[in-house]
Amino acid sequence: MSTWSRFNIVSIIVGFAFLYLPIVLLVIFSFNESKLVTVWAGFSTRWYVQLFQNQALLDAAWVTIRVALISATVATVLGTFAALAMTRYTRFRGRMLFSGMIYAPLVMPEVITGLSMLLLFVAIGFDRGFWTLTLAHITFTMCFVAVVVQSRLLSFDRSIEEAAMDLGATPVSTFLQVTLPVIAPAVFSGWVLALTLSLDDLVISSFTSGPGATTLPMKIYSQVRLGVTPEINAICTILIGIVAVGVLIASVVSRRREAQRVADERAAFAQ
């Protein structure tokens, strides 16, 4: 590939440095002995120790995880249904409105989504707390799931569904035995995306949660407003570490699977 010029390489390196340097610095300074985030004063893990003694923080983390697991799961079911509706039924009444409601939340400023949901819960007299938070998260993450699954369905070879029906499977059993297993990887990535978005969300959560349902981002935010401390760096480092390990595992697994597939194909053509 002679077309990969020096200019291309430099722009990628500079771009990636821009993307990663802030995160790297943040991680480094979480191990700083000093209370100042910007002056290096030696290696220490004392902020991590302090972190695990902070009960409020641990509670918030637990709330966040529960909300994320429930909302990602429900959002995956709803989002997969929505993706099926969008790709399979090209004509039904109100389809324009439907696709609008799928795409709009992807770009809608969070303050608007958050405020409007809060006002809904107030209007129907639903006390704000864990469940309102979960409902709100389901609503905005299901649209992301729908988009991920939809893009898989668009490249889906419909003839394998026809083959299943031709061989005697009813539409429902075709869906369960053929469609779902084939799109499962996309559904799973949708679930992971929904989980991450939910774990991450600050603005919508702040509007829709109530007493006793403080999430980790809300907790971090209120501390950040008071100033930058190594303790926050430590929380952030742990969160980044979890994500990094998760992504690493996922990529190793998928690379190994890909290598297996390539080897299989070679073997198949060799005979």
Binding site: L78, A85, L97, P105, L115, S116, L119, M142
Partner: peptide, 24 residues
């Protein structure tokens, strides 16, 4: 089955996404 695939997410989004805007 076909109907439910459309109706469930549609109803959800109407109630939790569109109606809130009307309330706003």
């Amino acid at each position: 089955f076909n109907r439910l695939v459309i109706i469930i997410p549609y109803a959800w989004l109407l109630f939790f996404f569109l109606i809130p805007f009307v309330i706003v």
